[in-house]
Design a protein around this nucleic acid. Structure first.
Lengths: 145, 145
DNA sequence: TTGTAAATAGAATTTATTTCTATTTAGATA
DNA sequence: TATCTAAATAGAAATAAATTCTATTTACAA
């Protein structure tokens, strides 16, 4: 686990614990994304005792810190994946096959302008998720959910 | 309740029941969106007996039929709004006082273009949620989250 | 008018997620 | 290095949104 990441955790006031690092390693090694339960299963192979609440708390804390990205599926479950850089990600989620693809579109500038000009407030973060049918599912299915 | 809507329900193989129509009326009269529990509360003012599962089932069926739009918030709760008013609603949520304000910004057109052009998919719905500090909280508080 | 598949009430249940409390640990400070 | 304190944790318990189940009622087609 690289030094930058440890530094980043400290910046977030998160202590560098073995389990916290292991959760990051599990997700960093994953090509896709995992749910809390799946992360827990993988953690149990590495630690004789590891509580599910620990997994939930860490995933939440790390996502709040921007180290992980949190995805909310149409099935309402939470999923996370490792985020190398500090930027936000926007997603296109297929409601049929659950596949997630990145979107490059981001209206951050316009959003910040509107919040600043008409609401007189400050933007801390924003979330954009787009639900739909991916190419494969568009070809083979109709919208039924 | 207009005739077009009844026709639309029949097209979806959904019978035109008083409660189903009332759920639509409740949401059509709402400028924003409502959760199942909120819809249930409003329904209980109109019917002496109305079950929460009935509300859930109808909201789901109507959303599947495209009469309602379903969105999933970062808090994982479901919300619905009538598909016939001004379209989707985007919100600015103050992380300090939890106040919600409407945003007029919407990048729907650009999003649909990108999904269509580069992903070859179709957009069903999207969720834009902006977190920040409102004017009052910007003046009096710091970000603590 | 009648038959039947859909809709419903109300209770019970499910399950992802969170809270609680006692205990342990990371890492700052002396 | 030893000590201290807030953060992190385990494990049990709780929460609550959402769903399932079964008997009963109703919309509406024939």
């Amino acid at each position: 686990m690289d030094r930058d990441l440890k530094t980043r955790l400290k910046t977030l006031n998160l202590k560098v614990t073995p389990k916290r690092l292991a959760i990051l390693e599990v997700l960093a090694a994953e090509p896709g994304y995992l749910g809390p339960e799946e992360v827990w299963q993988k953690m149990k192979k590495r630690f004789k005792s590891i509580g599910l609440p620990t997994v939930y708390r860490n995933l939440e804390d790390l996502a709040n810190g921007g180290v992980l990205i949190k995805i909310i599926h149409p099935d309402r479950k939470l999923y996370y994946y490792f985020c190398g850089n500090t930027g936000h990600h926007h997603h296109f989620i297929c409601v049929s096959c659950k596949k997630v693809e990145d979107l490059s579109f981001c209206g951050a500038d316009e959003i910040e302008k509107e919040v600043r000009d008409s609401l007189k407030g400050h933007v801390v973060s924003h979330l954009l998720q787009v639900y739909g049918l991916c190419e494969d599912c568009s070809l083979s299915k109709t919208i039924s959910s």
